[in-house]
Amino acid sequence: MKNQLLDSALSLLEDQHFDSLAVGVIDFKNQKFENFEISATNVVSEKPYLYFDLASLTKALTNSAVRLKSPEVFDEKSNLLLNHTAGLPSGGLLSKKTWREEILSYDVKLSPTLYSDYSSLRCMLEIEKKSGKKLKELCSYYFDPELVHWMELPENAFSPEYGIRNKQIISGQVHDNNCFNIAEFVSHAGLFATIDGLCRSLINLNQKASMNEQMLNAFKTHKNEDRFVMGFDHVMDPENTLAGKGATTKTFGHLGFTGTSFWINPETNIGAVILTNATQTYWYERSGLTKLRKALGAAIWRM
């Protein structure tokens, strides 16, 4: 990892309203990665140890991972759901007891793209029904030991602070309220990982399901105005993308509400991973996070 990237990260973190950051650069061709982690009080950890709430990265790490490995369990309906073009609303508060019935009550029909937690959950229910298997069994074939569901965090795991719920600091629990209340392995949120664990998992996913090759093939027939490709987000405006200048329209990945992201250029086989606890004090002012994402992404693509 170039010292310049670490220096930039330390400088950018000074202007944030959160205190933890991990950055990884993946070389898929050589199956290796470099990373660093900055914990509270700007301490650069010799060995990254923080378990970050991956938030909506979970969508790509579950449903999309199943699509890559087991395309036979997807039909026209579940592919629409996977790519957020199924007409379901973006989200809302779900009942712990009847959330499945609520999600299954919506009609599925081709619609303009609307990014949706509900669509992700319905996709999960559809592929579980068709396969006869639970999502965790379907998607965890590539998980590193340091990529886990929030209810299975190791006993001594340490997580940054992500805000307040019921007057208690959120740390070691998922930030998403629906995921917290449902308290099951679901597709829209709930995975936690160290920077090491996520980088190793993405390398495993590429090895076991030819992720980068499959995405390159998918882009051959993809219309750029469609935002999602096999459930992965992709760069639509290279000049103004959160992936950072230098990303291309074939760069794919996902964003997470807690300030997480990963982006992969399948043509160069380079990946950029950024993990933060951006919701620590407040979530609604994200200009600092945007600046950090763009600056670090651009620096990685230049490496």
Rank of each mutant, 00 (worst) to 15 (best):
A272Y: 12
T258K: 01
I203V: 05
K167S: 10
R165L: 13
N265Q: 04
T248N: 01
I270R: 11
R286P: 10
K250H: 02
G231K: 05
N63G: 01
I103S: 03
H175G: 05
Y51F: 13
Y142H: 15
S187T: 10
W263H: 08
K47W: 09
L138A: 00
L104A: 07
D19M: 05
W99S: 00
A243T: 01
D144A: 02
R67G: 00
S8C: 13
Q214D: 10
E155C: 00
T194Q: 00
L50F: 09
S201G: 12
L110K: 15
L135K: 04
F262N: 05
K294W: 06
F219Q: 03
Q31C: 13
V25P: 00
W150D: 02
D15A: 13
H84V: 00
V148F: 09
K129Q: 15
A60R: 12
N212R: 07
L242M: 13
S187K: 07
V108C: 08
G246W: 03
A298K: 14
T260S: 07
I103H: 04
L81F: 03
H175T: 14
E137D: 14
P48E: 03
D144T: 02
L255Q: 09
L275C: 05
E72R: 11
A183G: 00
S171Q: 14
L135V: 09
